[in-house]
Design a protein around this nucleic acid. Structure first.
Lengths: 337, 337
DNA sequence: AATTTTAACGTTAGCGCTAACTCTAATTGC
DNA sequence: GCAATTAGAGTTAGCGCTAACGTTAAAATT
């Protein structure tokens, strides 16, 4: 019977009649072996179905080709697109992604970071800038390149690529103010659940500094449904003239709720989403929204971190621009309205 | 200055005045240390910020707590939900997920499997049953538990949890036939791109064995758009009385195309989606679709593989039931129609 | 009291690989 | 022609951890 255990370098070396190191060098493509031997060794290795042992390699070189990526959730296109941008870049650089979803829990993030650090990853990517203090301490002590993505801060753990959510909120607010809206409201998640959502709300508030902005915070759940019910609840307490939403999906739910409540969009009420998903451009009535550069962010983030891994110094914090997409769910208000 | 390098077991042992093995045992929670020493060691380890080195551990025990998961794509809710079901289960069992997206390429899958195998993962999960022959050979030789998810086959690499797409197609076909539809058509992806889609089409065909079923295969892209354009193209060549779609998103696109083409749904044309996403129940006109148990599948799959890891024998191939959700986009056809 | 058992440790050997060094023979320069 | 280089190897010494086996002293059994 054939050897049950998988071949290791030693076995290849024995069969090739060379030393272990020659095989190691040949496999890694470093110099120190003649071309003749190299091709011979590689042929033999393939033949013997040799498969390297990354654990052994990582143990001795004290790092790995694993990159940890932590996201709040897989739900929705947003993080999927960021991730897809990153993965494409990492993959072609030979890195594998170890992925986590925190479900917006800082402690879940922390315990994952601890577990991941035991693998000596090449880099770690976290979503947002709101972490457990221990997470930050651990990562800064580890000297491993860290990227915070999606959000923006002047004081990153290590590097940061994202958008400024407060400014994005201001942008939404500006747009509404310029159109003449004056009774804005916001439908979002429970307070503290998503600090980026809160930052956007603050951005809107800063524009409408005089007006009070009511916020409806329906409990978590399917985005369409929460948008729908959050809007109904909001309307009960008085009709705003424009509603901002946490995201496009909730805005859709909100549009339906307005329809059901007999409020014409955009004639009687304005709707503003967030993210600028592909669908928003396809639907019969185009949504006014903020377009976020998700894929670009993923790619930029990945490049930033690859640069760090390779010791190239890069800008610590990069804010990507967002774009307001004026759709058909908002329109200029007459002065007398 | 303090030691730059992170503490290892040896350091903890030295400080505690015990042998390396005692620390190892204490940390792993295996017997062989007195409770007194154990608590003392654990306290010290925490104090010294000791962090285990998974590479070293995996090297000696010849396996890891990594589980590789390969998905075709992150786009759309479907795989995100399957993944989320799996990850929850794996996570609480102490495993980390190494994730890959193949973008429906068998060679991409193969090269990822190779890379992953070098990490001695605890298990590998692939989507579907259509793999490169080398992938299959490699995995079967590796003796690592393998799960194929989402699809169903009687001849899995190792284990399989999914739905029978041919049967699902039959179910859709049955529904339409019983309602009296007789000119069915199918809007899907390019041939061979997604063998599950093709299986469903075959399932529909087997029900309408007499009738020719035209298939529109728009090029890849945003699901809404491809559904939209695929439908317009289809209608050009003659109007079917019911259209089946690859998925719910494409069905939405199709509904819009019908609207634009002046075809009333469901009076002049029936629409059948696939997946039964949450939105389908929320939209103003409820979609007729097949509800797939995605989260359940993830959980079931994860449990199956955990059982395998722990040496418990399990059913090799499990087919989960799907459910037809009769919505408002299909209705009984009058005989004279 | 003499023997066996057991709990609580310690020691040894090695997992598969690579950095860093050493050795050899073929070049090179002058 | 002879020291100085150098390409192409091989040797040595671990990386941090754990399985397997040894050792010791106390507890249990006869």
């Amino acid at each position: 019977m054939p050897r049950a255990k998988p071949a290791k370098i030693e076995d290849v070396a024995a069969k090739a009649g060379v030393s272990i190191m020659s095989v190691s060098r040949a496999l890694r493509g470093v110099e120190g072996v003649s071309e003749k031997k190299r091709t011979e060794i590689l042929k033999l290795a393939r033949q013997m179905k040799y498969m390297p042992n990354s654990n052994a390699r990582s143990l001795v070189v004290a790092n790995s080709n694993l990159i940890g990526i932590s996201l709040p959730t897989f739900a929705g296109e947003v993080f999927a697109e960021i991730l897809s941008g990153m993965r494409g870049t990492f993959d072609s650089a030979g890195y594998s992604s170890v992925i986590d979803t925190t479900e917006y829990s800082r402690t879940a993030e922390l315990s994952w970071v601890k577990r991941l650090l035991s693998w000596q990853p090449a880099a770690i990517i976290l979503t947002g800038i709101d972490h457990d203090p221990e997470t930050r301490a651990l990562l800064q002590a580890s000297k491993i390149p860290v990227l915070e993505i999606w959000d923006h801060t002047g004081d990153p753990i290590d590097a940061c690529v994202g958008i400024d959510h407060f400014s994005a909120g201001e942008l939404m607010g500006q747009h509404a103010m310029e159109l003449g809206y004056c009774r804005p409201a916001f439908v979002t998640t429970p307070r503290g659940h998503d600090i980026r959502a809160d930052a956007r709300l603050e951005g809107v508030r800063s524009v409408f500094s005089g007006a009070e902005i009511r916020a409806s915070r329906p409990p978590l759940g399917n985005a369409f449904l929460t948008g729908f019910h959050g809007t109904l609840k909001l309307i009960e307490g008085g009709t705003p003239d424009v509603i901002f939403y946490l995201n496009d999906h909730m805005a859709f739910g909100g549009m339906m709720a307005c329809g059901q409540a007999g409020l014409q969009v955009p004639d009687q009420i304005g709707i503003v989403g967030f993210n600028g998903l592909d669908i928003t451009g396809v639907l019969p009535v185009k949504l006014t929204t903020i377009k976020t550069p998700r894929r670009l962010m993923g790619i930029t983030g990945a490049r930033t971190i690859l640069a760090k891994i390779n010791g190239v110094s890069v800008e610590a914090a990069k804010a990507l621009p967002v774009e307001l997409v004026a759709g058909e769910t908002t329109r200029p208000q007459s002065i007398t309205n």
